[in-house]
Nucleic acid binder design. Structure first.
Lengths: 249, 249
DNA sequence: TACAAAATTGCATAACTTTGCATAAAAGTT
DNA sequence: AACTTTTATGCAAAGTTATGCAATTTTGTA
């Protein structure tokens, strides 16, 4: 019996019963359980079923195609998004980089916003696609599936070609002495490129990011114009950031 | 007995039985198993059957075509995706451009595929994110929300930085005399850039695209190496494309 | 018709797949 | 926490397939 015929049998049985087990199939097809295990793995690798302990079940029809992951955003991020609105004026050109807070800002924009957004953040694409008057310029590069951003020399090079009215910087750690830091070296370089080509630097940091550091230095806090947090701007937690010439919001 | 007669015999038997084996055919046709093996390989190279260990099965019977996949893509596109699989080998670097057929190919890849995909097609990002061993390189540019692709001078410039083993070209009209054409000028330029930097040009065109044209010329059909359609490769509708040196599948 | 070039064929062999078993690692159960 | 069951991995045997080769057949050309 051909391997493909076994595949066929497995898939048909699965259609009928919604689940199959290794031992049942091994018996029916007169091969060892190992072989069935390998068959089911092959079908799994090709996206035709879901593996479970002891066998397989039909695929959960859960097309992971267009994830608008922005839906499950925390309250803190919504708060930051709301505060960010005051800095966004129609007609502006804006840099946005990685992080879910940036996505929250994009998602909260008025539908008729007229903007040009320049970004390496791929998670922004489905969000910004909803806006008819937002021109999106994608900075290319090697895509990182964890951060959902592009990075590399090309990304930096491209970012340097634009001058933006403001830059919303997400995904970074903030420390009153050690400044702005980031998890990846590449991200840090992109941030620096955006900083040097933006007229106003707006850093987004929820309370968990305050007084923390990451390995890669982006810039001094002195270079930052505005710091938006999810705290009230008179909160004690922000005291160490006052007197740095940053506008705290 | 002529080779063509053997081909006919194989195809007819396949239609009747859905599967054929080397030893069975070798007996029936009084030639060695090697010859049958070569015959079946020739038919496979033309997309007329699926090769399996021990013989061949019809394309429709290939379990990989059982598309209960999350994809709500048309049957034709699935058929093209299945035929495209024979050109994709692990370790390759591949250009892909816009169009839903290209997305169908990406969605049908085995989960453990090891590839580098270079694209301006943003719709590919969520699809390719599911593959741990596919490196995605995004070509930046101005994002077009209708085609879901990036375009512009930057896009072309970046595409030129890479050499790919093959290029899957989607979203184009095909005409036996007027060649490959596209709806937008910008898309056409990107296609040309990819053509000049890819070792093998594979054009995807479902039957609705055949014998049609669009305003912007991409290239002659002579520059195309392979044309994958949703038709069987011996269909009359493809006759005008024969004798152009293209492999029809 | 005769000849050279090209294609086709069957064979030998090397490379690769598949399979079931043994064992180690991981995941559930009590 | 100890035990059982299940799954993954490595291995060797058997089987299958691709490849190069030489012999043969076919094709094209003079």
């Amino acid at each position: 019996m051909l391997k493909e015929e076994r595949f066929d049998h497995i898939i048909n049985l699965l259609k009928k019963e919604n689940k199959v087990s290794y031992d049942q199939l091994a018996g029916e097809l007169h091969v060892s359980e190992d072989t069935i295990r390998r068959d089911i793995d092959a079908l799994y690798q090709n996206g035709l079923l879901s593996k479970v302990r002891g066998g397989a079940i039909t695929l959960a029809k859960n097309p992971l195609s267009f994830q608008d992951r922005s839906s499950h955003l925390s309250e803190g991020k919504e708060a930051i998004a709301l505060k960010a609105r005051q800095f966004i004026k129609n007609g502006q050109t804006i840099f946005m980089d990685g992080g879910t807070t940036v996505c929250a800002i994009a998602a909260s924009l008025p539908l008729d916003s007229n903007l040009r957004v320049i970004t390496n953040n791929m998670a922004l694409i489905p969000i910004l696609s909803n806006f008819n008057n937002i021109e999106v310029i994608v900075l290319g590069g090697k895509y990182n599936r964890d951060t959902q951003t592009n990075s590399g020399l090309r990304t930096i090079d491209e970012a340097r070609e634009y001058i933006a009215d403001c830059y919303f910087m997400g995904a970074c750690a903030l420390h009153h002495e050690l400044g702005v830091t980031s998890v990846f070296n590449e991200e840090a370089s992109i941030k620096r490129a955006m900083i040097s080509n933006a007229k106003k630097i707006i850093v987004l940091g929820n309370v968990e990011k305050l007084s923390t550091t990451e390995p890669f230095r982006v810039c001094d806090l002195a270079q930052v114009n505005v710091l938006i947090t999810d705290l009230p701007s008179d909160s004690d937690l922000l005291d160490s950031y006052r007197s740095l010439g940053i506008r705290l919001i």
